[in-house]
């Protein structure tokens, strides 16, 4: 990968003006573009904890978003779109966090909670698509409770 990046940088340099400031600016821009997509591994337990905390926070935020929609329904199409977005985010967060190699021990309780979050919203989405969510108050309370627990986890891992 870095070989390709270097090649690209050399190629870019060739066609840049001979002004050092501009050249530096453009090189920075390109480097940023090329490295922005890379995922970093967890270096040690502390780093892993930080990532776990951030994951818990993201999942909690998405649960709150789902709760807002479940508690205040609008049109079926709109509610479905928001819930779909939440499910997509949760599943990608789960996949990403699951992909990090834990240095010592995996955060089992966190993974349980994030999986549960994904399942909950997924079920709500099924209901939304099909018969409709019957007990909205209860569903919202469930989402809120899980979000609270995730936030407590995030507090503990900051």
């Amino acid at each position: 990968m870095s070989g390709v990046i270097n090649e690209a940088l050399v190629l870019l340099r060739a066609c840049l003006p001979a002004r050092p400031l501009l050249r530096a600016l453009l090189t920075a821009l390109l480097t940023g573009l090329l490295t922005a997509g890379c995922v970093s591994p967890a270096w040690d337990q502390h780093d892993y904890d930080l990532k776990a905390g951030a994951t818990a926070e993201t999942v909690a935020a998405n649960l709150e978003m789902a709760r807002l929609v479940v508690a205040h329904p609008h049109t079926a199409a709109y509610d479905k779109t928001v819930l779909t977005d939440v499910v997509d985010t949760l599943s990608s967060v789960n996949a990403q966090f699951g992909g990090i190699q834990p240095p010592v021990e995996p955060a089992g309780d966190l993974t349980d909670m994030t999986r549960q979050a994904e399942d909950m919203v997924q079920d709500l989405l099924f209901d939304q698509r099909g018969p409709g969510i019957d007990d909205r108050a209860k569903a919202a309370a469930g989402l809120e409770d899980l979000a609270k627990r995730l936030r407590a986890y995030a507090e503990a891992h900051q």
Partner: peptide
């Protein structure tokens, strides 16, 4: 969003406050 720490990640979520 701020009080419940939710962060909009799609356009659908951006317009949610208007719906509420």
């Amino acid at each position: 969003f701020l009080p419940v720490k939710a962060v909009p990640e799609s356009l659908a979520q951006v317009v949610l406050p208007v719906g509420l």
